[in-house]
Amino acid sequence: MKATIMPDQPPTTEPNRGEATEQTTMVQLTGVTKQYQHFQLEPVDLQLPAGMVMGLIGPNGAGKSTIMRIMMGLVNPNSGTVQVLGQTMSSNASIVKQEIGYFSDDLRLYGAESLGWHMQFVRSLYPHWDQEYAQMLLSRFGLLEQQRIKGLSHGQRVKAMLLLILARRPKLLILDEPTNGLDPVAKQEVLAELMQVMNDDDRSIIYSSHQTQDVEQISDWLTFIDRGRVIASDNRDDFLECWRRIKLRAPESWKMPPIPGLRHESQLQNFRVLTIDRFHSRVAETLVASGAEVEAIETMTLEEIFVGVVMRGREIESR
């Protein structure tokens, strides 16, 4: 079977929904770059309107964590500007962080101390700490205040960290792979709590993962990252609606008509599979009119779309 990767237009990295532009921008990255010895984050432009959940999807080492650390002011970019909650991060980080809850696998609590001690410590730095909500989360997550952190399982530690973040009542949540290493039950508990959090319309979440199912559940905007580059960014429903796999039969001499958004084509004798990212009912009509017999038009999972986008990007890069 032979396969062809189709060139494509560069990705749009700013949400283009009508309502989004009217909302407050929670995060705005403009031309942000970061150079490490073996990794380069290429200029990133991202915008997150209030009330939106953006999923950052990328393979391991793609640059998701670097982007999130830059948003948090933990890492300084080599160039570009970072605005979070309307403030420039480089000069106002400590003020802005009052309104941010940041989770990362890199963060560790003090193992010898109890969860209750951590709650007291975090509370002392956050005037908006919601003790009632913290108590509710304790019971919902099955945690005890007197438990020492080093005695907790991985899942419990993640929940403890989320408790410490959510009880601050932040306007913006930056969550770097929060469901990594969780069992299916714990993962659902965490995702359910995050969906609950989203009932507050003004709250925004940036959520990174390489597990597309998790991101698909809670995100309404998706950004794909690979090898330090933003390779696609779009509304989740648009991704799922516009991507289709079309299986067809056509003689080997068949000449394919121009198909808008054709991403990939593979062929085995007279059987062909086309992947397109701008599906419309007219596409099938065009194919039939050209002499092909359309056998199936299949929707694609987010994972398939993601893999398709990444593979295409790498193919183009290697040319």
Partner: peptide, 17 residues
């Protein structure tokens, strides 16, 4: 080493503080 620095700095604390 223990990655607790990232936890502390994720809160409203500046590098100077």
């Amino acid at each position: 080493l223990e990655h607790t620095r990232a936890f502390v700095l994720s809160m409203p604390v500046s590098v100077l503080d």
